[in-house]
Amino acid sequence: MHDGLAFDIAHLLAGGMVLVSFLMLYQDRLSALLNVFALHSLVLALAVGWQAYIQEAHHLYLTAGIALVFKAIIIPTALHRIVRRLGIHRSLEVVGGVGRDMLAGTALVALAILVMLPVTAAADALTREDLAFALAVVLLGLLLMINRHNAVSLVVGFMSLENGLMLAAAGARGMPLVVEISIAFSVLIALIVIGVFLFRIRERFDSVDMQAMDTFREKRRR
């Protein structure tokens, strides 16, 4: 069972994350985007948990737990509340259009696989697939970030990118410090995003639209 089924399930879960990344690309409502992000984190928790099981690396259960509690439950709930309070749950502006995003996303996944698979020829199959999918999730996260003007979706894009990194770290067999790194990342997200910026941006700009910030800058430069 260790090789066949274990590999298939790991493959399924990692592939599932890429799929959910695509789902995020075409969401046009913020609340829906947050729900899909919660799903993304849930799949990550399952994938990391599965890696912990087949590698017999017990510390990875902790990483999976952090992903589940913090990123699949706490962060989306908090962001939902912020979005509701700011009254911006209605619609999301997508730069360029969904069709183009999907095409670009497909190209990025192809790129990730073409880059990673030949390079990791020496590593075992499990690590290879995991790294290729992880790079795809990272690239899709970057695409999501550059595609929206909204601060909340920018943050969601960054967090999905970070999910991809956690997938890679869990897939690298026996990598130490994964727990510490995932905690460091959680602190980064929690401290800055939730605590400080969204409220302050609201307070100062009356908007979380990043274009409003650009106009401020242009005014100042004149």
Binding site: T120, A123, T127, L131, V138, L161, E162, L165, A172, M175
Partner: peptide, 15 residues
């Protein structure tokens, strides 16, 4: 974030 991906790859190369 990108630097972390690079760090993971160094580990994968070393492992």
């Amino acid at each position: 974030a990108l630097a972390l991906f690079g760090t993971i790859l160094v580990y994968v190369a070393a492992q």
